[in-house]
Design a protein around this nucleic acid. Structure first.
Lengths: 192, 192
DNA sequence: ATATTCATGTAACAAGTTACATGATTAG
DNA sequence: CTAATCATGTAACTTGTTACATGAATAT
């Protein structure tokens, strides 16, 4: 039941509509919790019903009205309780690694192409993260920021995202090299 | 729809009952695809119905009979097709990182304890992976194995798992240090 | 004695995905 | 003029989780 708490944690950054939340998830929360807009709309609805978040309608002139949600004290309390409960072990689910696992019974070229795509994606993420990092730091040094900023949670999870993408790069490049060497040997084997 | 393909890929290692499969997932597949025994029983049932896997009953003397599933040619073909389709971007979902994101509105000590637990878990995983690695290599050097072994998919995903856990350690230790420095300052602040 | 392993399942529920529907506004 | 952005939702479906149920064998 942690979609709920991911949403509550995202609302710590400030009130948001469903649409805005889904953007927030796209750029930063998705590093540790991904959710579709539909999930977010549904969850915000429930949080509202249960009093963990409160909606107010913001009327706009040129845009459709939006329902902006903010944390209630009960929502903050629920989040605080959540951080004290044991975290369930992370469940990893990655299509690409299933493809790699099956590479021997399949087409290595296709798998290599899939890995290359993932690497491109990782490079894009790293650039985004660096921009977000500079934004968070706002000109301060990292050590000063970590010692004095009000909120460091988002910075720490950003660090996690960066490390994750860096490791994706290291792994993928290595695997690509291994598969390339292999397929060239298979194509022209000098000895059996 | 990749639980299906994770199961097919796991069956490449040889036929298995639901129970055996769930063990196989626990030790190695879980690094990239986690599933509960119930999911596996359900999926094996379907694979059987659709002709992608075939069950045969193995009667045992002292144990309950088991239904052992093996890949059919149709199952292999389906897996091959899967590796050629674009992999959907990985969806990450990690309770611990939600807790870290919310650390500022919560109890840092509890979050630190959760991180420590995760670190212990990562260390255990790394030991397990090293044992599995030695088993796969079977005394050969890595480069020889990678060049000549029939199947390298499981080794490549194992590499991924190892790198992932190593990075978890680096990240977690860093975060722990940051949070420790912070809480000690808050407890006895020398300057505001 | 007690816990763990082996072995399989049903049922109910929660979470996540995909398709569809609507419609104005602004940037290229 | 076309695509992207802003903004919300319903409905149907597929996955994933949790609780329950059974029962023998072996390891501590």
């Amino acid at each position: 039941m942690a979609l709920r708490h991911a949403v509550l944690a995202a609302l710590l950054e400030g009130e948001a509509s469903g649409y805005q939340l889904s953007k927030r998830f796209d750029v930063s929360v998705a590093n540790f919790w991904s959710a579709t807009p539909q999930q977010l709309y549904r969850e915000l609805e429930r949080l509202g019903e249960e009093g963990l978040a409160q909606a107010r309608v913001v009327e706009q002139q040129r845009r459709p009205n939006k329902r902006v949600f903010r944390l209630t004290p009960a929502g903050r309390a629920e989040l605080r309780e959540f951080t004290k409960r044991p975290a369930r072990p992370m469940a990893m689910r990655d299509d690409l690694l299933v493809q790699v696992q099956a590479v021997d019974a399949s087409d290595p070229e296709a798998v290599m192409a899939a890995i290359s795509e993932r690497l491109e994606h990782a490079r894009g993420k790293l650039q985004l993260y660096e921009r977000l990092r500079q934004q968070l730091l706002g000109g301060q040094s990292e050590s000063r920021y970590l010692a004095e900023s009000e909120r460091i949670g988002p910075y720490l999870t950003l660090m996690g995202g960066r490390i994750f993408e860096e490791q994706t790069l290291r792994w993928g490049e290595r695997v690509l090299a291994i598969l390339a060497r292999r397929t060239s040997r298979r194509a022209s084997p000098h000895q059996p």
